[in-house]
Design a protein around this nucleic acid. Structure first.
Lengths: 145, 145
DNA sequence: TATTGTTATACTCTATAACTATA
DNA sequence: TATAGTTATAGAGTATAACAATA
């Protein structure tokens, strides 16, 4: 779970705990950066996802694992702040597309740079070659090739 | 000018992205497991933290990076469900200690096992020796030794 | 005076249920 | 009928400000 003690039964438990702990640390950084711009973790994610994509409300909700009604509120608030735009879907009259605005794209870029910069102190606790190894291992775990 | 070496900013960006992606994946698993027991990610964490510790409200809030007033509500709800107990702090009349209850400890153990089991499919995408390497790298990053 | 915790308040996030419009 | 999206509603999570009790 969160604590770092390892029940001496399974090998997997140790890696699980390390992964969970690293995740909470990462999320804390993302949360702080979001909060500095009045953005929740979810809004941060929406912005990141829409950086290079235009999606229907439904697809966005599926992507985030949220209900459609939740998406409505999220997009409402982001649109009101000028970060996103709602558009008519050209092929389905019921659907609504969401696209990032120029201001939103600019913010998203700044946020990403901020995340990289904020995680650097943690990452740099590893020497460069180990950083590369860690990245490779994580990517192999994320991409069931 | 401080950096005369090849800055490898893109190196760091790659690891950052992998770390963020792995974290979101991990958090999704934790959220789902929490939701199955009507627990938020934060409540899940509280339970995990108190598994082997008894803490003052303030220390708990600091640990989680939350305001004290937020802790009040979290502990209220968990206490009402019989998962935690409030206790008088023996040395400071203002302070309130929080301790996990027997029922809470039992649930926490079940949750931890659930997390290990749920992350196993992802973890097992790596062969065992690589799992050990990943764990070592993560722990080295988490523990500024 | 400073610290600990709670309460009051307000806003965001979230899901469920009911609704409208389109397919 | 089924799907896409919104609205209404309710509850949890969160912070800020004001407060009481204790140090």
């Amino acid at each position: 779970m969160v604590t770092s003690e390892r029940p001496a039964g399974s090998d997997r438990a140790g890696l699980t705990d390390a992964l969970v702990q690293a995740s909470f640390m990462t999320m804390a950084v993302l949360s702080r950066i979001g909060a500095e711009h009045d953005l929740s973790l979810t809004s941060l994610r929406v912005l990141a996802i829409l950086r290079d994509r235009r999606l229907k409300m439904t697809d966005l909700a599926d992507y985030l694992g949220l209900d459609q009604s939740t998406m409505t509120g999220l997009v409402d608030r982001a649109e009101k702040r000028g970060l996103l735009e709602r558009l008519r879907n050209p092929t389905d009259g019921r659907a609504v597309d969401v696209r990032i605005s120029p201001a939103g794209a600019e913010l998203a870029q700044r946020l990403h740079a901020d995340v990289v910069r904020s995680l650097a102190p943690m990452i740099d606790l590893l020497p460069r070659p180990e950083q590369r190894r860690l990245r490779t291992l994580l990517e192999r775990m994320l991409t069931p090739s």
